[in-house]
Amino acid sequence: MIAIIDYGAGNIFSVKNALDYLGFENKLTDKKGDLEKADALILPGVGAFPWAMNMLKLSGLTDVIKEQAQFKPFLGICLGMQLLFEKSYEFEECKGLGLIGGYVDKINEPELVIPHMGWNKLVYNHGCPLFNGLGDEEYVYFVHSYKAFCDNKNLYAYCEYGSKVPAVVSDGKYVFGCQFHPEKSGKTGLAILENFVKMTGEVK
């Protein structure tokens, strides 16, 4: 079972719809026990960083998330990816989950349209099981105004928007993050979600 962590953040149903469509058992949950039982965890999220961290704290799930992410596949999506980092400067300096080294700050491109909204091409930086079966020209759907700043070793794919925008990050073990929305990225996004679920080893 894949646990989709429900801490009050927006549009979690689209992640559920995508997993249902792919035929993977899943559950929207805010229960510690479900997170412990799950084969993999997904942390979705739309909204502001300090608000989301606060909601996570109020749900009492931060400790169990940090613990479970050490030994089972964990995927943060969009704001859920940004929450994986040590801190963010959205509105105010705010501590994140600290599962991957680095921070989150505004996309500073005065010449470009912000938010970075629409389909952009993935540029692969390191190999990653999430990319199994993908081609060279894969577009995915982004909507965000803040981006991650992290070491090259944690940057698995990026896209070009003025400068490099981290698209897929990982700690090299179980923790993964997608800045884009795989659940809204057509066939490419569904393939990435399927690759993620297959990491559990539970799915044929």
Partner: peptide
Amino acid sequence: TAKKVFVP
């Protein structure tokens, strides 16, 4: 629609 269309 949201159950089977995975674009925004």
